[in-house]
Structure formats: C-alpha cells, structure tokens
Design a protein around this nucleic acid. Structure first.
Lengths: 223, 223
DNA sequence: GTTGTTGACTGACTTGAGTCATAAATGATA
DNA sequence: TATCATTTATGACTCAAGTCAGTCAACAAC
C-alpha cells in the first residue's frame, strides 16, 4: 500500500506532470521532511511552524497552502512510518493463516510499536480521541485485518462505519493509558485491549481471551 | 453524586473555610459561570479567555490559576450537565431491573443527549486533545452502570482500568462520527455502538444485539 | 500597632498561529 | 518579444494564548 510520501517522491521526478505541479509537490515534500527532521531532533512541542518553513526554505504562509496545522503535517509522516512497521510486522506472520490470529498478532504488535515511536506517541497524546487525522494516518492499515476477519465469517459487526470509529477510538484511548507504563505492564494492557476488541467484533469471549494472550514473539529489529 | 459546581457553591457560603479560601472558590465559580454563559450565548470558538475573565471580573492571568485552557474550564460545566441528565435519565428507568438492560438504557440515552447539547458537542469535537478531561467530566457517571453489570456477574472484563479507557474512547469516537447525522441516523449508529460495547464487556453477541436495539422511549423534557 | 511572610492576584508583555494584500511566476495570446 | 490573466508564493501583520515580575491582601508573631 502506497503512502503520500512515496507518491510525492514519485511526482517530483515524474515527467508527465507540469513544472508547476512538480514544484508544488516538491515544496510539500520539503515541508514534510523538514517537519519530520525537526520533530525527531527536539521536543515536538517546541517546533514552530516558522521553524519548519525556515528549514524547508519556503515562506511562512506557504505552509498553510499545504497543511492546516502542525498536527496535520504529521499525518503523512505517521502514515509512512505506519506503512513501514506494518510491512515489518507482516513479515513475522510465519505460518499464521487464521484471519483472527493474524488480526490479533498485528494489532498487538502495532500497539507495542506505536508506544515506542516518539512521533507516534506525540501524535497519540495530542490526538486523544481519534480525529480525522488519526484515521487518515493509520485507518487503512488498521482496517485491513478486520475486513479479512469479516470476510472469513469468523467476525461480524452490525455496521462497518460505526465499527471503524469504535475500534479506532478504543484502540487509541487504551493505548493512551499505556504511555506512562513500563513495557511489561503496557504489553499486558495492550493484550487486554485486544481481547476486548476481538469480543467487540464478534469473537466469543473464551476464544478472544485465548488468542489475545498467546505468547508473542519479539520482532526482529527493523533495518 | 456531587459535582464540582455544587461543591463550590457550598464552599463560598460555608463558614468553616478561611476568607482566602472562600474568595478563591468564589473566583473559580465566577469564571466557570461566566464561561458557561458566554459559551451558551455565542459560538464557543469565538469566546476568548479575555472575554471570560472580563465577564467574571477577574484579571486575565487569574484564569490560569484555576484552569489550563478553555477546554479545561468546560470540565465542571460538562460534569454538572452530565449529573443533571444522568439523574433525569435514571428517572425513566421504570421497572427495569436487569443491570444489563439498565446499562443499555442509560448509555443509549446519554449518547443521544450528548449529541443534542451544544456545549457537549463542542467538547466532544475538541476533545481531539486530552481525554483526561473527558474522563474527569463524565467518567464517574459512565462507569457506574458498568460496575453494576460486573457485580451482577452478567458482564466481565479482564481489567477494569483498561476497560474504562477502552469504553470511553470507543464511546466518544463513535459519537464523534454522529455529529453530522440527523437524529434518526445518529440513533441507529448509537445503538450499534452500544451493541459493540456490550459485546466488549462480555455479553454474548445475540443478547447484545437484542438489548441494544429495543424500542427506546422518549425522555420527558427536562425542567 | 508594626513588621514580616506567605501566596493569591494582576495586566503588560512575549510569542506563535493563522490571515491576507501584494508580488512573483507561469503560460496563453497576439 | 510584449501583454495579460491566472495561479502560486510570500512575509508583514493581527490577534489571542500563555507568562511572569511585581502588587496587594491576609494573617502571624511580637
């Protein structure tokens, strides 16, 4: 699944786009890159829009041609990282075939990853309850394995739209409760959250408890 | 269950508190009252901190002795309204005795109420930031009926802390998805959300579907 | 009553987000 | 190449949030 950053990279060196369009994409990409760099370097709260535009070498006002807020510029960044982690986690699926097991595996791992990544943590803390932004950044990756569960008939919800919002809110909110825990406690809380999530999407309680608390292999470090 | 506003009202006319303490409570109460009035009168986004302090007749800086943000000053206001509505909804329980039925009844009605109240809606939409505030404002009321369900043995969750966060996030997020719907569609979405909530806290799927979609009587207008 | 200490209160000030009138760049047309 | 229309970029400006050094009221100790 492609991300906005990947698309922008393609666009700036594409030749079936007008120069105007290429410049536009280039500026957008430079802003995103500058924002990511500055936010990784220092405390995110202290990065100002002016800092970003200065580092990206565009006018202060130009920022608002591309993004409404600091929060919004993080969307493609988070999305890109989500895509990488998603691919990495899927790389560990091994012999798993049951959509429910796959769902549990990915949601448990992705939650752990989200708590490790400082950008993601910030985004989490400052999104509180999922905003459109959060949905835009991670919705696609999150939704896929749930869809597979529905398709298989093992899971069922009365309404997919409501379900998506429900899941995202529950996930983010539960995760927020973990930001101050140590890794061990956070892992336990995540598993409980996943257990409740599985119940919510229609898995019987006993199966949910079983699949959400299996021993979980460590991920290999990502290159 | 008492709210902060009720406690402040008591404090300002209590005589076993020092004058300093009474003045402090009085100022806090005046700020809350002024904020509530201004926010009901006009578009909430256009109410500034300066407006509030002017109306409350305190110095601009004093606001920050009591609250960190405009969002935070809404907590006691929302809480107070939640208490009133909670009492009103409970007044309609009638012959209901089963904790699960009571839980469904209150969560379904409170969600409908939240979508009607402009202050609540604003709070919901702008809770993009901290859920701590949301938990502070409505956590107590929300949690009670769940507790009753657990106590009865009909419902069970692996961890109450995680459960609380899970529920709050799911509830708020699903509700957020309803703010642009008409009352009818919102009602349907709310019922689906409650159905998933009941599953998450351990009710079998068929029972959850049943109890979350019963015909729901209208509330009498609140005095 | 006087003095000292504490901590609540204040509003001028700083900072940064977001706006908007203006400028620059582009490309179409003659 | 000159002219114009249109789109895109800019940074000076505005306005509100949040800070903080200083003021003041209350009370305690003498």
């Amino acid at each position: 699944m492609s991300t906005e950053i990947a698309e922008l990279e393609r666009a700036v060196s594409s030749d079936d786009l007008s120069r105007v369009e290429r410049k536009r994409c280039d500026a957008r990409l430079r802003i995103i890159r500058a924002a990511e760099r500055l936010m990784i370097e220092g405390p995110i709260d202290e990065v100002t829009i002016a800092d970003i535009t200065r580092a990206a070498d565009v006018g202060h006002g130009s920022f608002y041609l591309h993004f409404k807020s600091k929060h919004e510029v993080l969307v493609p960044i988070i999305q890109d990282r989500a895509a990488r982690w998603d691919a990495h986690v899927r790389d560990h699926l091994g012999a798993l075939e049951d959509p429910v097991e796959i769902l549990a595996f990915t949601t448990r791992h992705m939650a752990r990853v989200a708590l490790e990544d400082p950008l993601w943590r910030w985004f989490l803390i400052h999104s509180g309850v999922p905003t459109e932004d959060m949905a835009a950044a991670v919705g696609r990756f999150g939704a896929r394995d749930f869809q597979a569960g529905f398709a298989s008939g093992r899971l069922a919800v009365p309404d997919v739209e409501v379900c998506n919002r429900f899941i995202l809110g529950a996930y983010v909110s539960a995760l927020l409760g973990c930001v101050d825990m140590d890794a061990d406690a956070a892992g336990k809380a995540i598993d409980v959250m996943v257990e409740m999530l599985l119940r919510a999407v229609g898995l019987p309680a006993d199966e949910a408890a079983d699949v959400a608390h299996r021993p979980l292999s460590e991920l290999r470090p990502m290159s």
